[in-house]
């Protein structure tokens, strides 16, 4: 088991190095001189400044050496400088990260809990009336664009009903309390969750239906076990395995999905930071954000891998 986790950690490290390399290549994909690109729209295009950037980033050195510098910088948490915002990229990200974590974390838990519960209910009584209703709702949720449902929720709950605030966290003026924060959090979290609720409903339903058809369920019935108990002890643990895999894969999309949501709800998180960087061609900032979200995903993957070992004893057999 330790060797399994060890192999996973090595793999995660490999992925991180690959991400940083990809980042490095992306910058070089941009048409034009990288130094000018990094200087970006800082408004300072005098040759001396561009030259200083060139030296600071080692852009006058061979490509492989540049990559090495870039890797070393990145792994010492030096993501460069945002000339637009006149600050270190890493400190800007650190400042915004809590808001994003609150948003994506809440959405992750909400979608997982609601989605899996509905999916299990639907799957346990597949083809029943409740199942049909859940499937129809799911189909709709699955097909709604995230940004659009955000606007519609604002339209209904902020503009028409005036129940909930449409933007910000409530802490902007330093006078918020927990309740205000939760009121502000509600719409963005629901917006971000709905699609993933649908994903988990569909997945949980399918896995429950699949597991219910397996032979050991019949064995459990032949022992005289009650239906509810079979569901809890045999169906759910087995049905959770694909959901766990999916959850770690979806985590990455949750992070990038937050870009649109943070933009709509003026949520001061990393996603919006990335969006603004995107709009203003602030590449250091942009790649810093991308790297951060990729790192979060890799981290979550490790967590899910470890969970998987705890749940599924077969894991050591499969490579």
């Amino acid at each position: 088991m330790t060797s399994y986790i060890g192999s996973r950690l090595i793999k995660a490290l490999g992925i991180l190095i690959a991400v940083v390399t990809l980042n490095f290549l992306l910058i070089r994909l941009v048409p034009g001189d990288p130094a000018t690109v990094i200087a970006g729209e800082s408004g300072m295009s005098d040759p001396a400044f561009v030259e200083s950037i060139r030296r600071a980033y080692g852009l006058d050195q061979p490509l492989l050496l540049q990559l090495k510098t870039y890797l070393l910088n990145t792994f010492t948490f030096d993501f460069g400088f945002s000339y637009r915002l006149q600050s270190d990229v890493i400190s800007l990200i650190a400042e915004r990260l809590p808001a994003t974590l609150a948003l994506t974390g809440a959405a992750f838990i909400l979608s997982l809990v609601v989605g899996v519960s509905l999916g299990v209910v639907a799957g346990a009584r597949a083809d029943g009336k409740l199942d049909l209703i859940i499937r129809l709702v799911t189909l709709t949720l699955y097909s709604i664009p995230v940004f659009w449902i955000g606007l519609m929720l604002i339209l209904i709950f902020s503009v028409k009903l005036r129940w909930l605030p449409a933007s910000g966290t409530g802490f902007e003026y330093g006078d918020g309390d927990a309740l205000t924060f939760l009121r502000h959090l509600l719409l963005p979290v629901v917006t971000l969750s709905l699609f993933y609720v649908a994903v988990y409903v569909r997945l949980a339903r399918t896995s429950v239906v699949d597991v219910l058809h397996l032979d050991f369920i019949r064995t459990a019935r032949s022992k005289g076990m009650a239906g509810g108990k079979i569901l809890r002890r045999h169906v759910l643990p087995n049905a959770m395995l694909p959901i766990l895999t999916m959850a770690s894969l979806q985590a990455g999309n949750l992070v990038s999905g937050s870009i649109a949501v943070e933009t709509i709800f003026a949520w001061p998180g990393v996603g919006r930071l990335g969006y603004e960087a995107l709009m203003h061609r602030d590449y250091n900032m942009l790649l810093g954000v991308f790297l951060t979200s990729a790192a979060m995903v890799v981290l979550l993957n490790i967590v899910s891998d470890i969970l998987y070992v705890l749940v599924d004893p077969r894991i050591e057999l499969v490579k």
Partner: peptide, 14 residues
């Protein structure tokens, strides 16, 4: 009751 395929008749993760 005893079934034909003992591999699948037992819960693999219990």
């Amino acid at each position: 009751v005893v079934f034909q395929e003992p591999m699948t008749a037992l819960n693999p993760i219990m």
